[in-house]
């Protein structure tokens, strides 16, 4: 406890001026939820890299078809152009009908991305609204729980296969098939969150002030769900893309004239023994997209948790 006494000027022993406003500021901290979320997210170089990769892939796949003259479905009758190795004027080579795989890869990515995005938006949109009502309106609870039990107990794959058999294979069939089962999981997630939020003290405060239900949902509930919903969407995209590839793989995917990653993988696997590059490139692309979305989604979920903020 004993420390040498420092030399202090006697004039320091004067009462100091007291600044009340400065004292008030001692408890004040600059903190913004979104800024901290972004800062935590961007702290990891992996997240930045993968996010950049997603941005590049998405932009390129949507721009390429607009600027490139190559038709991904143009069949070349000249057998010399069939199954050409990568390089040789075709960056990814050609397939068994002489179609340019580079072009097909971008067209395929665009189709799959679009599919993923549409399903994500529908799933999250329906799931959010249904979940909010499920949580808020007590009478809906029984019905929704039953629907959840039914949908959740049917094996996903069986359901997908069944639906694609019933409906004609096509882009929207896959959208419908994946959305029918996809929304309920998100709805339940949202419902559980809403139940937690509903009786929080700040919501009781709003009720005491006579705040109408629509503003309660808009101002008191939804802002708490935004980060969760973004994460859910980010995870639905790779799942949907993967499902489309799976359906294509077992021959129930999109029609063959639609270029998608699923069809590319499906065709590539047939020639895999002779021309492995025809499977390798689409698969690598697929892996890059799904893994990036998956990791970015999870990293974002971590970053959006205020407990991880400083």
């Amino acid at each position: 406890m004993k420390r040498p006494m420092p030399d202090l000027a006697p004039e320091l022993f004067r009462p100091a001026l007291f600044d009340e406003a400065a004292a008030e500021l001692t408890g004040y901290a600059h903190y913004s939820y979104w800024r901290s979320t972004m800062r935590t997210f961007l702290k990891s170089p992996v997240s930045i890299f993968l996010l950049a990769l997603i941005v590049v892939l998405v932009t390129a796949s949507f721009i390429y078809p607009l600027v490139s003259p190559t038709d991904p479905n143009r069949v070349d009758l000249d057998t010399a152009t069939w199954n050409m190795e990568p390089g040789s004027g075709h960056a990814f080579g050609t397939d068994g009908l002489g179609r340019d795989l580079w072009a097909r890869a971008w067209y395929g990515t665009r189709t799959s991305m679009l599919l993923g995005l549409i399903i994500a938006i529908l799933d999250v949109g329906i799931g959010m609204i249904a979940g909010a009502l499920w949580g808020y309106v007590k009478r809906l609870d029984r019905v929704m729980t039953e629907i959840y039990n039914v949908l959740n107990n049917i094996p996903q794959t069986v359901f997908l296969i069944l639906l694609t058999y019933i409906m004609r294979p096509g882009f929207w069939t896959i959208v419908v098939a994946l959305c029918t089962t996809g929304w309920i999981g998100i709805a339940r997630f949202v419902r559980n969150k809403v139940l937690m939020i509903r009786d929080a003290e700040y919501n009781i405060a709003s009720r005491c002030l006579g705040t109408p239900l629509h503003r309660m949902i808009l101002k008191n509930v939804l802002p708490y769900l935004v980060s969760i919903l973004i994460m859910e969407a980010a995870l639905t995209i790779p799942y949907s893309i993967g499902s489309e590839v799976f359906l294509g793989f077992i021959g129930l995917g999109l029609p063959l004239d639609t270029v998608s990653l699923g069809n590319l993988v499906n065709l590539g696997k047939n020639n895999f023994m002779l021309y492995p590059y025809q499977l390798t490139w689409p698969t690598l692309l697929l892996a890059a997209i799904t893994i990036s979305f998956y990791i970015v989604g999870n990293r974002f979920a971590d970053a959006s948790d205020p407990r991880n903020h400083v």
């Binding site: 004993k2 006494m5 202090l8 320091l12 022993f13 009462p15 100091a16 007291f18 400065a22 004292a23």
Partner: peptide, 17 residues
């Protein structure tokens, strides 16, 4: 010191023993 109306100037400079 910042919350103490009876603080001395020295309180802002040197930790008291």
């Amino acid at each position: 010191a910042p919350r103490n109306p009876q603080a001395l100037e020295v309180d802002f400079v040197e930790e008291p023993p």
